[in-house]
């Protein structure tokens, strides 16, 4: 109860400050919060929810899921095979250093203007933190546990599933958390260039059409989306890493 109160405290104060500071505002570009909330209801509780917001979120999920699969699979292979790592590391460092937004025009050339392009943009940014963290996690597996697997003949898929991936899971989750915020950014960016629908496109449209309260309501929606996804992520993290957090809490007690 107290934890919830502390977590909600600052957001409530900030919203209140915004509400009263902007009340009765006549500034065209900074409308009152009450005006923005009204626009929020009119804009997003209607066809735009299905035409713009949900497709955006769908592409985000598709790109994020693809990045997870790619990043974990490649990262596991690279982390487990030393010569593969030596071979790929310089190339990976180069690719990782390219900011994904500059790839958008190139990806458009290859994949056109549709959903595929947007999903590829999201994958191209999300995959790096997942991949690199997985490599580190797989490299750092405990030697005694590795010996245990060898002496009990735990090999192949079973070793991968019950030992390598689990041992690397704290790092994989760290990478996945970083990738989620990158994914939201890229979802918006991919819709700002040469798009005809989606959250990013809609916000730019509102801005160009001087529909300022509607534009602000889109920004608000993106913020809420981020908070919601991060809460969802935490639920999964708690389930996957229950052992990790428990073990660390136990160590602090000793």
């Amino acid at each position: 109860m107290r934890r919830i109160a502390i977590a909600l405290g600052l957001p409530v104060v900030l919203v209140a400050v915004w509400w009263f500071a902007s009340a009765g505002s006549t500034d065209f570009y900074r409308p009152a919060l009450s005006r923005i909330l009204l626009a929020f209801r009119e804009t997003w509780f209607g066809p735009r929810l299905f035409d713009d917001a949900l497709p955006s979120v769908g592409r985000l999920f598709a790109g994020y899921a693809l990045a997870l699969v790619l990043g974990v699979a490649l990262g596991t292979a690279i982390g487990a095979i030393p010569w593969l790592r030596a071979l790929l590391e310089p190339a990976l460092e180069f690719l990782r250093a390219i900011p994904p937004p500059v790839l958008v025009p190139i990806i458009i050339l290859i994949a056109g203007f549709g959903d595929l392009m947007k999903v590829i943009v999201i994958v191209s940014g999300c995959v790096w933190p997942i991949l690199l963290n997985t490599v580190e996690g797989v490299r750092g597996v405990d030697e005694v546990l590795a010996d245990t697997c060898r002496s009990y003949r735990i090999t192949g898929a079973m070793r991968l599933r019950h030992f390598v991936l689990r041992a690397a899971s704290p790092q994989i989750v760290t990478g996945a958390r970083q990738a989620l915020s990158i994914g939201i950014i890229l979802m918006v960016i991919s819709e700002m260039i040469a798009a005809s629908q989606g959250l990013g496109f809609t916000i730019v449209q509102f801005q160009r059409g001087f529909q300022i309260p509607e534009m602000w309501s889109g920004v608000l929606l993106l913020g809420l989306l981020g908070v919601g996804l991060s809460a969802l992520f935490q639920v999964f993290e708690r389930r996957i890493l229950i052992w990790y957090h428990g073990q660390r809490a136990e160590m602090r007690e000793w």
Partner: peptide
Amino acid sequence: FQEYGRSLFPW
């Protein structure tokens, strides 16, 4: 092994 803490799978 000697290191019981590291020879059991904590997960």
